[in-house]
Simulated scan of single mutants.
Amino acid sequence: MHPLILLAIAIVGEVAATVSLKLSEGFSKLVPSVVVIVGYGVAFTALAKLLKQGFPVGVAYAVWAAIGVAAVALIGALFLDEPFTPVMGLGLAMVIGGVLLLELGRTH
């Protein structure tokens, strides 16, 4: 499978699991609790397959984590009534910038 597809699957699985972790209310709600387990399973399986194909672990983890953090923060702000301030936005921009620099450094 194409590396970027595996990375996308890993990100979607991790984001779904992390958001569901909040919705599970301490694993007291069945459906979100199941999504947590399945989502993290999908995420780590896809990430493992990606790394097995020779994708650099530092870049894979940086992209996976940065996009996951950004997505969860935005989902929290848009759908879960969590705060999102301009300073938080700047922090996310810096994380994404750092990932881009990691990728650029790999190619030079």
Rank of each mutant, 00 (worst) to 15 (best):
His2Asp: 15
Pro3Lys: 02
Pro3Ser: 04
Pro3Trp: 09
Pro3Cys: 05
Leu4His: 13
Leu7Met: 13
Leu7Tyr: 10
Ala8Phe: 08
Ile9Tyr: 07
Ile9Thr: 11
Ala10Thr: 06
Ile11Arg: 04
Ile11Gln: 02
Val12His: 04
Glu14Ser: 13
Glu14Cys: 06
Val15Tyr: 03
Val15Glu: 04
Ala16Pro: 05
Ala16His: 01
Ala17Gly: 04
Thr18Ile: 03
Thr18Ala: 05
Ser20Phe: 01
Ser20Ala: 10
Leu21Gly: 08
Leu21Trp: 06
Lys22Met: 07
Leu23Trp: 10
Leu23His: 05
Leu23Asn: 07
Leu23Pro: 06
Ser24Leu: 03
Glu25Met: 12
Glu25Asp: 14
Gly26Leu: 07
Gly26Cys: 08
Gly26Trp: 06
Phe27Gly: 09
Phe27Leu: 12
Val31Pro: 08
Pro32Tyr: 07
Val34Ala: 11
Val34Phe: 10
Val35Glu: 06
Val35Leu: 12
Val35Cys: 06
Val35Thr: 12
Val35His: 05
Val36Thr: 09
Ile37Phe: 13
Ile37Val: 15
Ile37Lys: 06
Gly39Leu: 02
Gly39Trp: 02
Gly39Pro: 06
Gly39Ala: 07
Tyr40Thr: 04
Tyr40Gln: 07
Gly41Asn: 03
Gly41Met: 05
Val42Cys: 04
Ala43Val: 09
Ala46Arg: 00
Ala46Asp: 05
Ala48Glu: 13
Ala48Gly: 08
Lys49Asn: 13
Leu50Lys: 03
Lys52Glu: 15
Lys52Ile: 14
Lys52Val: 12
Gly54Glu: 06
Gly54Gln: 05
Gly54Phe: 00
Phe55Tyr: 08
Pro56Val: 02
Gly58Thr: 02
Val59Ser: 03
Val59Ile: 13
Val59Pro: 00
Ala60Thr: 05
Ala62Gln: 02
Ala62Gly: 10
Val63Pro: 00
Trp64Phe: 06
Trp64Leu: 05
Trp64Ser: 00
Ala65Asn: 00
Ala66Met: 01
Ala66Thr: 02
Ile67Gly: 01
Ile67Pro: 00
Val69Tyr: 00
Val69Ala: 07
Ala70Val: 11
Ala70Tyr: 00
Ala71Gln: 00
Val72Glu: 01
Val72Ile: 05
Ala73Gly: 03
Leu74Ile: 09
Ile75Lys: 01
Gly76Ala: 02
Gly76Gln: 01
Ala77Leu: 04
Phe79Gly: 07
Asp81Ala: 13
Asp81Val: 10
Glu82Leu: 11
Glu82Pro: 02
Pro83Leu: 09
Pro83Asp: 12
Pro83Ser: 13
Phe84Ile: 08
Thr85Pro: 09
Pro86Ile: 09
Pro86Ala: 09
Val87Pro: 06
Val87Gln: 13
Gly89Asp: 07
Leu90Asn: 11
Leu90Met: 15
Gly91Trp: 08
Gly91Arg: 08
Leu92Ala: 10
Leu92Gly: 12
Ala93Tyr: 12
Met94Pro: 07
Met94Arg: 10
Val95Leu: 15
Val95Pro: 11
Gly97Thr: 13
Gly98Leu: 11
Gly98Thr: 09
Val99Ala: 11
Val99Ile: 13
Leu100Gly: 14
Leu101Trp: 14
Leu102Ala: 14
Leu102Ser: 15
Leu104Trp: 14
Thr107Cys: 13
Thr107Phe: 14
His108Thr: 14
His108Arg: 14
